[in-house]
């Protein structure tokens, strides 16, 4: 089967899943429970995506844990997103060099 066809199906389904609720849902939600649920959603999504995946993100759990600790500390100190992200990668790199 042509690869272009696979790509078209991938793109089409992904777009519709994003577009239909976003474009057609215009009501303001009144329910306190649903509002609260939506308020907590982004934090829950990010946390579930990060843990435990971050520990497998570098191919070496020791360097990944070191990077995670660096990210947690710098994030707790309220550093900008980009600084936290790059410092975590730098820590992983340094740990990788040091451990070998």
């Amino acid at each position: 089967m042509a690869i272009a066809l696979y790509i078209a199906v991938m793109a089409g389904v992904t777009y519709l899943v994003r577009m239909i609720p976003f474009a057609f849902f215009t009501k303001k939600i009144e329910s306190v429970y649903i509002k609260s649920f939506l308020h907590y959603m982004p934090y829950a999504v990010l946390s579930a995506m990060t843990i435990p995946a971050i520990f497998f993100s570098t191919g070496n759990m020791t360097t990944a844990i070191i990077g995670t600790i660096v990210a947690l500390v710098l994030a707790y100190l309220d550093l900008p997103l980009i600084a936290v992200a790059i410092a975590a990668a730098a820590a992983v790199f340094a740990a990788g060099v040091f451990l070998n």
């Binding site: 934090y43 946390s47 191919g59 995670t68 994030a75 997103l81 936290v84 990668a89 992983v92 060099v97």
Partner: peptide, 27 residues
């Protein structure tokens, strides 16, 4: 070692988004 280190970038960003509000609000 460079590609391995880059693997953590996106998760570092996630942590930077969730930790500050989590440290201020118990919920």
């Amino acid at each position: 070692q460079v590609t391995a280190a880059l693997g953590i970038v996106i998760y570092g960003m996630f942590i930077a988004i969730i930790v500050p509000p989590a440290s201020k609000q118990r919920s």
